[in-house]
Amino acid sequence: MARITAGVATSHVPAIGAAFDQGRAGDAYWKPVFDGYEWVKQWEKQEKPDVVILCYNDHASAMMLDVVPTFALGMAEEFIPADEGWGQRPVPVVQGHIELAAHLAEQLVIDEFDLTLMNNMDVDHGCTVPLSLMFGQVEAWPCRVIPLAVNVTQFPTPSGNRCWMLGEAIAHAVESFPEDLNVQIWGTGGMSHQLQGPRAGLINPEFDNAFLDGLIDDTDRLRAITRLEYLRESGSEGIELIMWLIMRAALGKDVEELHRFYHVPASNTAVGHIVLRPRELVTA
């Protein structure tokens, strides 16, 4: 039986990818950021997930122009890193898991989540920067990845509560997959940031840290945060945090915090990172 063994969340800033790819990770500006991911890189080597369900948002790279899906599930054998205007990132092609993706597609629609299924798409920094942060510089990613793209760009986005319910449905779907698979779920994006207009550069450490705390012991409060509140408190792009709620909901009622990191800034953005384990797996 497949099982979700952990949840990981991280910001997915493109400049982090550029610093990583151009060998600037040791620079004074970037070192504190990359140091925050040393723990998880070692941990992932021991965890050896078979599959990661990677919740991210496409930044107008593979969708959002002709088609604007609220939830889009990656069904393909592989996903090529997108060229976002400066050439493709020099990272491995992302390998999908078509059996589990097909199972999710079936189960989630039956559970009344009307997903868009993507048989062909490239993946942008939203997907590949978290992979670099968790696995480092590698010849091939050490696991399969099922990308799940969420619209956080065009209003209305799905609500945080809807994302939470999707996470719960994903947990049920994974549980009913017959093959024995070690599955992680990742939520990416955030934390507070705004990339537009005179208010650009907004950072709200109080909001961010309360969000991190809430993932452990106050999830009902997080579920109730409105789109308006995300915009006001965490900036227009801070609403990416709703994707963390998919991850958190998929872990069940209680979780153990294994690791946490928070740093300002990376480019325009507050960097947050957390690693969680379902409580039932900690005590088992």
């Binding site: 507070s192 907004l202 950072i203 709200n204 909001f207 006001r232 408190e233 800034p265 480019s267 325009n268």
Partner: peptide, 14 residues
Amino acid sequence: MMRAGGRSPEGQRS
């Protein structure tokens, strides 16, 4: 401004 912690949300919410 970003290195110094970014733009505060104070006065910027509404």
